[in-house]
Amino acid sequence: MNTDVSTPLFTPFVTQCIEAAREIIALLDSGDDALYLKHSQGIGGDVSIGADLECQRIFVKYLLPLAHIDSEESGFIPSPSSTQDIIILDPLDGSDNFLSHIPYYGASLALCDGRKICKEAVVIHFCTQTLIARSGERIFELSLLDPTPTSLLSSTSTKCGIFEKAYSNPHIAKLLFDHRLKFRSLGASALSLSLAYKVSFMLFAGNIREYDSKAGLFLCEGLYINHNRDFLLISKDKQIFDTIMQLLTQGKD
């Protein structure tokens, strides 16, 4: 098994994300009761749990020497270095899934310049121990158990899309159902964005937060995207994209 990530295949940002992810996965798998305790409300608006704060602590340990961090839990954390770069961080995307023992949660990290223009992005799937990353124009995925990168390829045999926030938008869900557009609602928006290459579409209803979307949007730049205050729609299939766009416009009338 190849465990050496100090290779030119990876930038310092991706390397540190890999190391942090390994430590976090071991911690989350420990089942420590403190991970499930509720704390105060985070900057992103949700009540933080112990797991949120512990994931943030580990990411800060590995990444703060590289850049400032803007975390969903604590807001702006200054780096001791002279860099202007900033990492937009959701340290535990899918906290409710974690609390409910549903194996679909991870982390989203976007390395941006001082103007918040994304340069690199990583979305980590803690449960499958995999990540999807983009450095410049290079997009790849890898297993944390054997970090040999492979090019991220679109799937040609997808049957379902992902519709996050479907529970609060039954009218849109019915439109999709009526047009035989199958979907699942998985409960971790950043992770779902990173799967847009694999599924038939990814739809988020409402105004998605930057912590959830910054990395995923950078990963998905080559796909069909419509991002506005009412929804975020991404698809690799133009026909499906156009169909859903018509339904969303129809649904607003």
Rank of each mutant, 00 (worst) to 15 (best):
55 C>G: 06
56 Q>W: 09
57 R>P: 12
59 F>T: 12
59 F>Q: 12
60 V>W: 00
61 K>S: 08
62 Y>C: 11
63 L>S: 00
63 L>V: 07
66 L>H: 09
66 L>S: 01
67 A>K: 00
67 A>Q: 07
71 S>R: 04
71 S>V: 06
71 S>K: 02
76 F>D: 08
77 I>F: 08
77 I>E: 15
78 P>Y: 13
78 P>Q: 08
79 S>E: 11
80 P>C: 10
81 S>V: 04
82 S>N: 11
83 T>A: 03
83 T>E: 06
83 T>Y: 02
85 D>E: 10
86 I>S: 03
86 I>M: 12
89 L>D: 01
94 G>C: 08
94 G>I: 06
95 S>Q: 05
96 D>F: 07
98 F>G: 05
98 F>P: 01
99 L>Y: 13
100 S>C: 11
101 H>I: 05
104 Y>H: 13
106 G>E: 07
107 A>R: 06
109 L>T: 04
110 A>S: 08
111 L>R: 13
112 C>W: 03
112 C>F: 05
115 R>V: 04
116 K>S: 11
118 C>H: 05
118 C>M: 00
122 V>K: 05
124 I>A: 00
125 H>C: 06
125 H>Q: 14
129 Q>A: 12
129 Q>R: 15
129 Q>D: 07
130 T>Y: 03
130 T>M: 15
131 L>R: 08
132 I>G: 00
134 R>P: 02
134 R>A: 14
134 R>F: 12
136 G>R: 14
137 E>D: 15
138 R>G: 01
141 E>S: 09
143 S>M: 01
145 L>M: 14
147 P>Q: 12
147 P>L: 09
147 P>A: 05
149 P>G: 14
150 T>G: 13
152 L>I: 12
154 S>I: 05
154 S>G: 11
155 S>L: 10
156 T>F: 08
156 T>K: 09
157 S>H: 08
157 S>W: 06
158 T>S: 10
158 T>I: 03
159 K>A: 11
159 K>D: 10
160 C>N: 15
161 G>Y: 00
161 G>S: 00
162 I>T: 01
162 I>R: 10
163 F>V: 09
164 E>H: 05
167 Y>L: 10
168 S>Q: 13
169 N>W: 02
